[in-house]
Amino acid sequence: MIPGDFQVKKPTSKQLAIFGTLGVVGLGSFVAIALGLTWIVSAWLGMPVIFAHDQGPTQPIAFPHPTHVQDLGLDCTFCHRNVTEGAAATIPSAGLCLTCHQVVGDGLEQIENMREQVADDRPIDWVRVHRVPDHVHFVHEAHIRRFSGVKTVVEEWTDPNEQAGEIRLGEALRIDPSVSVGQTMEIAEAQVCSVCHGDVGSMATVEQVRPLKMGDCVDCHRDNGAPTDCTTCHY
């Protein structure tokens, strides 16, 4: 025996009775709580979208996507520079904002706020809208690579093993609602974003348009012949 090891002591009959009662009561309440929780959770999971459709979070600086995208014609990759390079799309550094807003936007409250923050070396606490759990590793670059370029719109794959030149109607419609089957379209890298993010350029407040839950990912992967091995995303 190793000194200091835990020694088992026999319980007294009184202790046995107490533990017994506690056990039965505990088991009962556990079952009750478990049933209750199951109902709540299953009802919750019946919801299609975690963040509600109708509203996105309030940002510390009300960045107007429509002004920059629709009015000025900047494309997504102008600011979200890493999206074609790596895993994260990334929020641009305030320095990038200042390339224009050093001179543009004098007198606008939001812009003055931002300049002040940058001058103080304080980070802007953007609220993240699209978020997958920690155990999911989503890579933007690979998805953009798959969908960008010249593609023919199809209903079903002509050759299930060779899909590089084709895009399914479902995805195509998300990029451009006016396309039809058989049409050939050239998809720019920045256009691919709308497959999952919707038309962010027209959103005053950015909100999530797809569930982005595992079912959503797997459906799309399956439809597009992408790997569905667990370690594609989970590691």
């Binding site: 520079r81 929020i91 759990p133």
Partner: peptide, 23 residues
């Protein structure tokens, strides 16, 4: 439950003045 699932246990409070994402 849902709130927790939403919370990415992001290890990093990203300082916004840095180019993020690429190593």
């Amino acid at each position: 439950v849902p709130a927790d699932e939403l919370l990415v246990q992001a290890p990093v409070e990203m300082p916004e003045d840095l180019v993020t994402g690429l190593d």
